[in-house]
Design a protein around this nucleic acid. Structure first.
Lengths: 341, 341
DNA sequence: TTGTACGCGTTATCAT
DNA sequence: ATGATAACGCGTACAA
């Protein structure tokens, strides 16, 4: 079983020294005689040599490795952001170590330790729980860190994510314009995830100025219960005006949109007549007749910014004030928020 | 900027030698006196020490790193399999280096080189192109390799994926049972991806015994063209019998199902009356009224088997005959293959 | 321009 | 039971 070739073997094969070979692969070929360059190139090719990143990293103290902690890898939004992160890493010659935590705080800690042991040079965190202590320890060691989407109060780090204020302004404006007057905001439990809290808060704050009435429902995970809640919202008599005022559902993210759509179908509700709008664009939103209105996040840009922030923080060793990078969502209006007249 | 603590610092802090600390973390605590154990544990905790995997890997020649090459990270099927791979790795104490190639053969080569340079101990490959030469070189170096879903003729390695014969038997049986007589098989270009070829071949082979008539259409990427093709299929006069025989579409994978659904909606076709069935279960398939019938792949199991194969091949150094692990799909029957009336 | 020698953090070998 | 030392593959002063 032939092992990988080492730099020494290449040197021998090329009739040169380690140093020259090392220089050759470090991109300092201009400091080598053309003849030597050729010999090294030939030898490396013959032996299929590739510098050992482990040894390289050990020596240089840098692994060229970026770690990404994802709360739920099966969430299309996370994957889309990851795609952006990956592209940005590639452009920087960095490799990406991805860890999925399935929303398990325990796993989160384990994976954090794992990535740290691989000497990652930066960490992109989409945390489910709050491994504050662990993260603080890592930042304390000077490890650049970027929070994705979800904020962690105790951790001093850049945050990149959606402009939730803008998102809810956009959503409420759109729903109001379309003539919906009573809203039900659907969300997963907002306790631990900051975007959920922010969105909920801005939902409630934005109602009054638009003369909307609204309330919020927190999903427990049971489809049936959600269905009941929606039904109650839709069937009770109007609040503000007499008669039936147009009503709409606003979903805090893609997972909620999915659940809500399922529930509405079971209830036999006609979309549009009852409004439906969601944050996060998914590839099936256009397919549910007459199309579900969404706010699309610029996932690619978010991912790229995460890496950019990481890099910025790793050059300036001085602890800079954490920055926030908030991205604007894009409204994709479809039939589910068009009152059939 | 405080660096990571090293084994030497822990040794000093604990008043012990490097060797003992190393033993402690290598799990050989039974060979140490309880007192020393305690001192080391305390020191390590105080310094937040974690063994440097880079150095470990350099010394031991093993990185505890598995590489996974994914053709399209935004494909939910790939992500689901990756989830399985990740879980299996975790159970083995392995870390997973994920590389997405966006179906770009060039990137594929780059990423292969990258992972190789990180001394990955195994490679799970879901190739878009055919980097045969590169892969052969890697296997030649004794690197365990598993092909996921897509076969590569020139590479001698285990393959794990769907039992495509069984899948098409299941699909054709179901469609025939439901009363559809003329089928249109929709696929992406089958040239380079082996599952596409296999499925297409088994589709055509399975028609006769079930007295079905069928033809295949290869998507070019243009939605309009697909729509035209479907329309032509649906509107032309019956082939086998006079009058209108029930017709159905069979989609080779999730991406095709998405495109086909879009096209059918544009055409204003009623699902069920015109059959629709797809390979790959997606979370929106239940939502498109009256539900899209699918064949679900056991993605988690596939991912786990990939890692299992890798491990098996890495213990038995002798080049074993490549094995194939074919998994059965599960039929999820919904309204899209129920003839109304 | 090219080569020598040392050290990165760890583990394995050999001694004590 | 514990410790000293060499090596893993590489980069880099420094010397030539």
């Amino acid at each position: 079983m032939p092992r990988r070739a080492t730099i020494i073997e290449v040197a021998r094969e090329a009739g040169a020294s380690k140093t020259s070979v090392s220089r050759y692969f470090a991109g300092e070929r201009d400091k080598l005689s053309p003849a030597l360059c050729k010999r090294i190139a030939a030898a490396a090719l013959r032996l299929d040599y590739r510098p050992n990143q482990m040894a390289r990293g050990l020596k240089a103290g840098r692994s060229r490795l970026i770690g990404m902690l994802v709360a739920d890898i099966r969430n299309p939004f996370s994957v889309a952001v990851m795609h952006g992160v990956e592209r940005a890493c590639r452009e920087q010659g960095l490799a990406l170590l991805v860890c999925n935590t399935d929303n398990d705080p325990e796993l989160e800690r384990t994976h954090l330790a794992l990535m740290s042991s691989y000497q990652v040079e930066g960490l992109v965190i989409n945390a489910s729980g709050s491994p504050d202590a662990e993260l603080q320890a890592l930042t304390g060691q000077g490890l650049p860190l970027v929070l994705l989407d979800r904020e962690l109060s105790a951790v001093q780090a850049d945050l990149v994510g959606l402009d939730n204020t803008r998102a809810l302004d956009l959503a409420l404006d759109h729903l109001a314009e379309q003539g919906y007057a009573e809203l039900l905001y659907l969300s997963e439990p907002p306790e631990r995830a900051s975007p959920r809290r922010e969105r909920l808060a801005h939902f409630q704050a934005g109602l009054a100025t638009r003369r909307l009435s609204g309330e919020a429902y927190t999903m427990s995970g049971s489809d049936k219960e959600l269905q009941r809640a929606i039904k109650a919202f839709l069937t009770r008599s109007g609040l503000e005006r007499s008669g039936n005022t147009p009503r709409a559902l606003l979903c805090a993210n893609g997972a909620v949109t999915l659940a809500a759509t399922r529930a509405l179908q079971r209830l036999g509700v006609r979309l549009g007549e009852t409004g439906l709008m969601g944050i996060d664009e998914l590839d099936w939103c256009a397919l549910i007749a007459p199309g579900i209105t969404t706010l699309a996040q610029p996932t690619e840009a978010i991912g790229r910014q995460a890496v950019a922030s990481l890099l910025a923080n790793s050059v300036s060793q001085t602890a800079v004030e954490p920055r926030q990078h908030r991205f604007e969502p894009r409204l994709i209006a479809r039939g589910s928020t068009r009152l059939t007249g």
